[in-house]
Design a protein around this nucleic acid. Structure first.
Lengths: 241, 241
DNA sequence: GACGCCATGAATGTCAGACAATTAAATGTC
DNA sequence: GACATTTAATTGTCTGACATTCATGGCGTC
């Protein structure tokens, strides 16, 4: 009996009702909800309560509100971008709040990422390979900040997962990769380690080019092991400090 | 000029401010936010506006509110369960709203799920194998409804991903598997197809038992192909109707 | 008739003030 | 010390008002 929630608030209940209407298809994308005043009357609550319920739904991108005449609350079309942004927020918080070891997080991330190698090798396009090559160039700049290096790293891996040519897969993988970024940002990348990583990135691109699944997979495995090593040395440095 | 967002509402801005405080670590888990009245004064807005902002954050499970003296809004500890529930809501909506072909969704789901096979074979426990066996028994009941069959299927696959012994991986995979459930529910499972699926489930368990990665992987691949076939025949049946 | 301007009305966004409900802590009582 | 009562702080809800936004339609001018 962890969560009694003795008296769930009216605004929460109303939000749940409307959410169910949307998720279960009784309200379709683009549909306009009744006005706040109408909802208030229909459910026997005040307008303030209705508004709190609507704000809850808006926070989950389930609805969007427009002002002015013929404005109101509309069932939102959830785009991949919005969905991914939400997933990243949630996952980032989850990772940050649960004392998760760097190793476990890394293991999960690379396990997930490797799930796209076979499709990626099969379907990779020249455009995406070019994107990856450009990111490698960016990463090679000697005066690049650690943050910029990480950002380019994320962009590289996003291009990699996009190679699989499956939007749904890209959505899930990009979310999990991005959620790792704050953890990755703890690492200070020396020139030595950057060179190592860039070499592996090159191996990945070259593997995709030759549609050589095994070599891409091997490069990712090596990258995982290397990243974990880096993470552990950071942790050791902190512990002795 | 699709989204000007000319005047973001005060409650949205305030929510963003507090969200940043949480995500960027200025507010830690368990911290208590100032009372609504104090927040209203601090930010020069009314209490109603503050409340709308707080409801937005509560909808994302970033905070939780308690009533009574010494109650208030507290930075929430995001559990795996809450995080997964949110991810499922988002992903389910994304799949439902974007005219995604069953095949693409299925391909993504199984690609992701197969990312845990190697770890699962290595780390599977007897307890989890037992869970999987029990679900297989449930699925074998001849008078089982389609919904119950699907639910047991989800439970089976959740146990499978849990075998990998990595919480983070389980969180991501369970989310993507569950999000597929509404799509799976469209399928009517004949006795013939249930038998086929159960056989493959048995193959998975037996493969894990023997720590035979390749055979688990093969069973999942077959399951993917078979599920896609089933999905397509449903679509054809609908088209000719 | 065509064009631009403005009033109108409907809706959301915000505010102020009040009261109800809840709950932990302080206080009183035995 | 154990138990009942009061108290104060805080969220939850309601009411009524006003501000702001914006599509529509009417009006006047050319």
């Amino acid at each position: 009996m962890k969560n009694q929630t003795s008296t769930p608030s009216l605004s929460a209940t109303l939000a749940d009702t409307i959410r169910a209407d949307i998720v279960e298809g009784r309200l379709l994308v683009g549909d306009r909800l009744p006005s706040e005043a109408e909802l208030a009357e229909q459910h026997g609550v005040s307008r303030a309560t209705v508004r709190e319920a609507l704000k809850r739904l808006a926070a989950q991108s389930l609805i969007r509100t427009e002002r002015g005449a013929f404005g109101g609350a509309f069932v939102n079309h959830l785009s991949y971008e919005e969905a991914r942004a939400q997933q990243v927020t949630t996952s980032t918080l989850l990772l940050g709040m649960n004392a998760i070891s760097f190793q476990v997080a890394c293991e999960a991330r690379y396990a997930l990422e490797r799930s796209c190698t076979s499709l990626a090798a099969e379907r990779r396009t020249d455009a995406l390979l070019d994107t990856m090559r450009k990111e490698i160039e960016t990463q090679s700049a000697p005066d690049l900040s650690d943050e910029a290096f990480c950002a380019s790293d994320v962009a590289f891996h996003r291009a990699l997962v996009d190679c699989a040519g499956n939007e749904v897969l890209s959505y899930h993988l990009a979310g999990s990769v991005e959620a790792m970024q704050p953890l990755m940002n703890m690492i200070t990348f020396t020139a030595r380690s950057r060179a190592e990583i860039i070499d592996l990135h090159r191996a990945i691109v070259s593997g995709l080019e030759r549609r050589d699944v095994a070599s891409v997979d091997r490069a990712l495995a090596t990258l995982e092991a290397y990243t974990i090593t880096l993470g552990q040395s950071v942790l050791k440095a902190r512990a002795t400090r």
